[in-house]
Simulated assay, not measured.
Amino acid sequence: MAKQSGVKSIAVNKKARHLYELLESFEAGVALQGVEVKSLRQGHVSFKDGYVEFKSGEAWLRGVHIAPYENAGYVQIDPERERKLLLHTEEIERLTDKVEQKGLSVVPVRMYFKNGRVKLEISLARGKKLHDRREDIKQRDIAKDTARQLARY
């Protein structure tokens, strides 16, 4: 079986950039069952309230919904189950320290296939306040208006 080359996007967490200020990104592997991978190939994933939790020196992905694969037969897997993230020990320790000390969160940003393997981009994030979100929307609108004005001339 030949390995696939390149990166193929599965899903992007659009809410992450809206609700959080993303500070630092990491790439993590995800421990999945076979039917979950088949469901991901069809793009059936929802990040909704997903986050990363650290327990006893391991990173766990919680709150991410991977829809059941309809042709799975008798194999039934909980779509909301915890999934282990595959990170280096140093990365886990570094993220754990920052989350505990500074009150930051680790959120999933996007999921993709890289050389045939499922990868998850996670980011160290600080929650935005309501006025910060409004400021971002205001800046985006200003940028659109200026681009529109420049397009006329």
Rank of each mutant, 00 (worst) to 15 (best):
P108M: 11
R81L: 09
G43R: 04
S39R: 01
V52E: 08
G116F: 03
E80R: 08
P79R: 01
Q42V: 10
K48R: 10
G34H: 10
F47R: 08
A72F: 07
V106Y: 00
M111C: 06
K144Q: 11
D132T: 08
E36A: 06
M111Q: 05
S105A: 07
V99T: 02
R140Y: 14
E100C: 07
V109P: 04
E53W: 05
Q76N: 13
E93Q: 12
R126F: 00
S56K: 11
G127E: 15
E36D: 06
S123W: 07
I137Y: 12
R41T: 10
A72S: 09
G103K: 00
G116D: 11
L61M: 06
L61C: 01
L87W: 05
I137R: 08
Q42G: 08
D97Q: 11
I77G: 04
H44P: 00
G34M: 14
G73L: 04
E121L: 09
Y74L: 14
K128G: 01
S123K: 08
I92A: 02
R134L: 13
A31N: 14
V118T: 04
E82D: 15
G103S: 01
Q42E: 15
D136V: 02
H131F: 11
D97A: 14
L95F: 03
L124P: 07
A125F: 02
D97F: 12
K138D: 13
V37E: 07
E80I: 07
V45M: 12
V64K: 01
D145I: 10
S123N: 11
S123L: 06
H65Q: 09
V106I: 02
K48S: 13
D145V: 11
S123Q: 13
S46G: 14
L85V: 01
Y69W: 12
K48I: 11
K128T: 05
A67V: 15
A147Y: 13
P108W: 13
A31F: 14
R134N: 06
E135V: 10
H131M: 07
V45S: 05
I66R: 01
K114N: 10
T96L: 05
L130E: 14
P79W: 07
E80L: 15
Q33H: 15
D49Q: 10
H131W: 12
R110N: 04
E121F: 07
V75L: 15
V45T: 08
E121N: 07
P108E: 13
V118W: 06
I142E: 14
L120K: 01
A125S: 04
E70F: 15
Q42I: 11
Y51Q: 12
R117F: 14
V107T: 04
A125D: 02
G43Q: 08
G116Q: 05
K98I: 00
T146H: 09
Y69C: 05
D97H: 10
V64M: 04
N115H: 12
E53G: 02
G43W: 08
E93R: 14
R110Q: 09
G50S: 09
E100T: 03
V52R: 01
T96H: 06
H88P: 00
A59P: 05
S56G: 09
Y69Q: 04
M111D: 05
A59T: 05
S123P: 03
N71V: 00
E70C: 12
E53A: 10
D49R: 05
G34A: 15
Y74K: 13
M111Y: 03
K84D: 07
D141F: 13
P108K: 07
K84R: 15
G73M: 03
L86Q: 09
W60D: 06
E90V: 11
A147F: 13
R134Y: 12
